[in-house]
Amino acid sequence: GIPATNLSRVAGLEKQLAIELKVKQGAENMIQTYSNGSTKDRKLLLTAQQMLQDSKTKIDIIRMQLRRALQ
């Protein structure tokens, strides 16, 4: 079985993952909103794209940590 310490770690990672998935969803929504907007929305679009990139990276890292914890 999986050690108890790993189980609480997994629960924490799953919570983090859920949050990051919401951030990713929000960033994707912002990108959709701003991509057909005016030029003043360009900065917001770039910010949203950066957020999305960061979020995807975090999600990958969390998933990797989850896999390790579940081994």
Rank of each mutant, 00 (worst) to 15 (best):
residue 2 I to L: 08
residue 3 P to N: 12
residue 3 P to R: 05
residue 4 A to P: 08
residue 4 A to E: 13
residue 4 A to K: 13
residue 4 A to I: 12
residue 5 T to W: 06
residue 5 T to I: 09
residue 6 N to W: 02
residue 7 L to N: 07
residue 8 S to C: 15
residue 9 R to A: 07
residue 9 R to Y: 15
residue 10 V to N: 02
residue 10 V to E: 01
residue 10 V to P: 01
residue 11 A to W: 05
residue 12 G to I: 15
residue 13 L to C: 02
residue 14 E to R: 14
residue 15 K to R: 13
residue 15 K to Q: 09
residue 16 Q to R: 10
residue 16 Q to M: 11
residue 17 L to P: 00
residue 17 L to E: 00
residue 17 L to N: 00
residue 18 A to P: 00
residue 20 E to W: 14
residue 21 L to C: 13
residue 22 K to T: 06
residue 23 V to T: 07
residue 23 V to A: 07
residue 23 V to C: 09
residue 24 K to Q: 06
residue 25 Q to M: 08
residue 25 Q to S: 07
residue 25 Q to V: 06
residue 25 Q to C: 09
residue 26 G to H: 15
residue 26 G to L: 15
residue 27 A to P: 00
residue 27 A to F: 13
residue 27 A to I: 15
residue 29 N to Y: 11
residue 29 N to F: 13
residue 29 N to G: 06
residue 29 N to Q: 13
residue 30 M to V: 05
residue 31 I to G: 01
residue 32 Q to L: 11
residue 33 T to G: 06
residue 34 Y to I: 11
residue 34 Y to P: 02
residue 35 S to N: 13
residue 35 S to R: 09
residue 35 S to C: 15
residue 35 S to D: 09
residue 36 N to P: 04
residue 37 G to V: 05
residue 38 S to K: 09
residue 38 S to C: 12
residue 38 S to H: 09
residue 39 T to L: 08
residue 39 T to S: 10
residue 39 T to M: 08
residue 40 K to N: 09
residue 40 K to L: 08
residue 40 K to Y: 12
residue 40 K to F: 13
residue 41 D to M: 02
residue 43 K to A: 13
residue 43 K to D: 12
residue 43 K to P: 06
residue 45 L to D: 01
residue 46 L to Q: 11
residue 47 T to L: 14
residue 47 T to I: 14
residue 47 T to R: 13
residue 48 A to L: 12
residue 48 A to C: 03
residue 48 A to T: 02
residue 48 A to M: 05
residue 49 Q to P: 00
residue 49 Q to S: 03
residue 49 Q to D: 01
residue 50 Q to M: 10
residue 50 Q to F: 03
residue 51 M to T: 06
residue 53 Q to G: 03
residue 53 Q to C: 11
residue 53 Q to E: 13
residue 53 Q to N: 05
residue 54 D to E: 11
residue 56 K to S: 08
residue 56 K to W: 04
residue 57 T to P: 01
residue 58 K to E: 02
residue 58 K to M: 07
residue 58 K to N: 05
residue 59 I to C: 02
residue 59 I to H: 00
residue 59 I to Q: 00
residue 59 I to N: 00
residue 59 I to T: 01
residue 60 D to F: 13
residue 61 I to K: 11
residue 61 I to H: 11
residue 61 I to N: 10
residue 62 I to Q: 00
residue 62 I to H: 00
residue 63 R to D: 03
residue 63 R to F: 08
residue 64 M to I: 10
residue 64 M to Q: 11
residue 64 M to E: 14
residue 65 Q to Y: 05
residue 65 Q to N: 05
residue 65 Q to H: 06
residue 66 L to S: 00
residue 67 R to W: 07
residue 67 R to M: 09
residue 68 R to A: 14
residue 69 A to F: 05
residue 69 A to R: 02
residue 69 A to Y: 07
residue 69 A to C: 07
residue 70 L to C: 09
residue 71 Q to N: 09
residue 71 Q to T: 08
residue 71 Q to G: 08
residue 71 Q to W: 03
residue 71 Q to D: 11
